[in-house]
Design a protein around this nucleic acid. Sequence first.
RNA 1: UGGGGUGUCGCCAAGUGGUAAGGCACCGGGUUUUGAUCCCGGCAUUCGCAGGUUCGAAUCCUGCCACCCCAGCCA
Length: 543
Amino acid sequence: MKEESTDFIRQRISEDLATGKLKGEVVTRFPPEPNGYLHIGHAKSICLNFGVAEQFGGFTYLRFDDTNPEKESDEYVQAIIRDVAWLGFDWGDRLTHASDYFQKLYDFAEDLIRDGKAYICSLSGEEIRAGRGTLTEPGQDSPYRNRAVEENLDMFRRMRAGEFSDGAHVLRAKIDMASPNINLRDPVLYRIRHATHQRTGDTWCIYPMYDYTHCICDALEGITHSLCTLEFEDHRPLYDWVLDNINVNIHPPQIEFSRLGLEYTVMSKRLLQRLVEENRVDGWDDPRMPTIAGLRRRGVTPGAIRDFCRRVGVTKQDNVVEMSLLEFCIRQDLESASPRAMVVLDPLKVTLTNYAEDNETLEAPWHPQQDHLGRRSIPFGPNLFIEREDFAEVPPKKFKRLSPGEMVRLRYGYIIRCDEVIKDFDGRITELRCSYFRDSKSGADTSGLKPKGVIHWVAAEASVPVRVRLYERLFREPAPSGSTFLQDLNPESMRVVEARAEPAIMDSVETRFQFERTGYFCRDSELENVFNRTVTLRDSWKP
RNA sequence: UGGGGUGUCGCCAAGUGGUAAGGCACCGGGUUUUGAUCCCGGCAUUCGCAGGUUCGAAUCCUGCCACCCCAGCCA
């Protein structure tokens, strides 16, 4: 079994347990906002939160951070639930929503007002921004900062009752307009939004802000370690301020770690959403997307993603992980589990001029090392297809495939020799005329011939036409810039090819295969006779 | 130039005063009817830089430098 990781967060939890600071179970939460699909960066957080709880014998909430009705929807909620479950994590009955706590949140807000720690500010959005100061200059107190408690309470209730229009007033915390930390310059706690919430409908027209909501939900759920990404580090004093100023007896520590960066893609819901909305990809589950749904449709396994997240680690360092690590994890997980098949992606006709038999049937294991996967039949005949790139009229040095006058073994079949190359008027090769060696049958080879290499092939008539989608990186730049990322898109991120597959895979119940010598492929979940290339095979051939 | 962070091999990442783990990538070599898998071996005298403390420093101190985040009624 894999040894358990010990990143700084797990070390911290171990300490809390050892010093008695934490008694009882470790409780974490994964708190997505349902305003988009989850991506592999979220997977890192999911693996961390669920992994930590599992490792220390606790549990994890799946909590939707649904405080902004204008951007959130049930479609996203359902997609997120599906993705977290698919990744292999179980939240039991601990599926919650920030909106479950709207009334409690509201009550705490009234408490803050009564305590003189929050006030209704009637400045406009621009005025509030202007009054906030800058990074180097302190802000100015709002003229409403010292509004009387009773008036604040009355106005807050009227806000809730729907007496005001959007933006007319907000509830602000009374902290310090001169704080060097901008988040402490009387942050907005509640705003008016006459919008229908995907869960609470029109019950509310005021909605709490993230900073106010998140910490209270954590406390109410008894979260013992509130893990989030680095950009919230500056918000920690506010997280602490809220919990210190309301009547709760739980105060989880917020611990921040760095987000995952991955080469040749973007990891921002906003940018991913643009790709979807501007039809640069075919939806959130386009196999080129770094979304969980995209990776799934591409054929990536949950285990590969979990392994990737484990190998990537958890630190506070900014990082951009190379795609080769993800690919390694995918190949490793697929290698022993995937049945093999022969599929010719770019067919070149081969005619065996001396093949006089009736068509015959060969047999091969589904996997060269995994006998338990069984065997399959492979039809053979005088008319074949081989991979166009497995033939070279003028072979480069160390070429182990077919060329004029040379021999090659057809995998699980016979040895053939290329005798003649047929071309059309444009000089394009249209057919190879070859002879086969009858006594060289795989497993019963008495020919004594020693061909340089082995290639995959398919019988022309018996093979099945399938459409194969070959994916490349979505972006041509390792780190697409947020502002010009559309220009960085790789125009060749998907190539569709009409291939010929051995018939056995059409009868198989498997969805993932290794197409020998070309890569790992997955039957598309939506489209008939379509296979997606999950990842290529490692290729160490260098001419 | 205010505040908050981060700097260890191409990319991740251990290391918490005792003399630089590991993974990916890469480079050799072996096995192989997938140029796959698998197996062996190689790969940081040096930890952003410069000083200092110490018998001893990636780890402690001082000063620089670089990069990331923050001025939503987003999360």
